[in-house]
Design a binder for these strands. Structure first.
Lengths: 219, 219
DNA sequence: ACCTGAACACCGTTCAAGT
DNA sequence: ACCTGAACACCGTTCAAGT
């Protein structure tokens, strides 16, 4: 794994870290591991990044920069809002191990600022004041992130082991609950263990968020 | 800090870990630190817990067990659902550093199962089928957790330093953006940096979730 | 400008052993 | 049943030094 393309760069490290997180989870993203992966000494990383936290900042920024923001368009605010949330979702879905990093880092770099500005703009169009737009907009972006962080496929690499066996095990456990006390859990057992990560899970809950915004605004 | 009450117990360790997480953040919760805090060898922890992950399981279960579930009641499903989400929120709000642990652990112990069963029951009453109830219910609980994980007060202890100064700094940064490109961020700057953690933030977004459920159901 | 070497203070965990 | 001691393989990070 210790290959050295010629020179090390911030971007190369970030790409490497992203691939590593996708393949083995965020806890595999380590200063020492990244160094090893690039055929370099751990301390070489400290030339390109101040410390590990700024490496994580870079990962989050790179992730958010991959959002394909739709053009400001002329449709209704709710359809435009949905389109933006879906664009955000689509960008982070391939990287569930990194999505959580964005929770606290949306407003720290330009790509996140652009995303947030667009969300706030649409919420203002929907009739929210500046404060309410801030509160709702912040939550909407966090909620979309949660949609993919809750994805059990994200845990696959983390646990390292057999995800399918784990799902079968959890479902069997739910099915084995006392029918008198947990009728709904038993009825929903198959969906509970496999719903997250399915397209249906994302679309229905994005819909819930947009409908919630519509129901919450003043006018 | 090395006091020893007589004997070590699972519950004592969990209480200690909870206090530690509240005071210094989750990354201060360490096998070695817990041992030191209890005047004991690190390896003593392994008698009470298989490994660190099962310690975290215990912390999450203890947290969820503190939810004061309202009685099944006779009101409308949406009012009951709001009451349950608020009860969940109130329980985890005092422990923002631990809330994230519950994201993947709701269905692993009895308190979480009881909570989930109640949520699913109300969603069925609202007209959702078993699969949709599972998808929406899972998301609702995750979204409530996100409400407190996104709380910047949770980062206060983690960063260790001056949270107020950090907020002033972030707000100044937002105010200094180009007015042409980020008018809404500038207008919402005060709310963006301080909205989370405020009661208003929680109530408006819990409302958004409940309204979203109402708008999403079939009948 | 970019990287190395040695060292420090931390982690979680295992394994054998004590009482 | 409950805890200790020594050891192992990992962390992030600093500081001085090399080219």
């Amino acid at each position: 794994m210790a290959k050295r393309s010629v020179r090390l760069s911030r971007d190369a490290i970030i790409d490497c870290a992203t691939a590593l997180a996708d393949a083995e989870g965020l806890e595999a993203v380590t200063i020492r591991r990244l160094a090893q992966e690039n055929g370099v000494t751990p301390m070489a990383m400290y030339w390109h990044f101040n410390d590990k936290d700024s490496l994580l900042d870079g990962l989050a920024e790179h992730l958010i920069a991959s959002v394909k923001l739709p053009e400001p368009g002329d449709g209704m605010w709710d359809e435009q809002l949905r389109a933006i949330l879906v664009a955000f979702l689509d960008a982070i879905r391939p990287h569930p191990a990194l999505a959580g990093l964005a929770l606290r880092r949306i407003l720290v770099a330009e790509p996140g600022l652009r995303l947030a500005e667009r969300v706030l703009d649409l919420l203002r169009q929907a009739g929210f004041g500046p404060e309410q737009a801030a509160e709702v907009g912040t939550f909407l972006m966090c909620a979309v992130i949660t949609l993919v962080v809750g994805d059990p496929m994200a845990a696959k690499a983390a646990v390292g082991g057999d995800a399918a066996a784990d799902m079968r095990h959890k479902q069997a456990m739910l099915q084995a609950l006392e029918p008198g006390r947990y009728p709904n859990l038993i009825a929903a057992a198959p969906a509970l263990v496999s719903c997250r990560g399915q397209d249906d899970y994302f679309t229905i809950n994005i819909d819930l968020l947009v409908q919630g915004v519509r129901g919450t605004r003043r006018n």
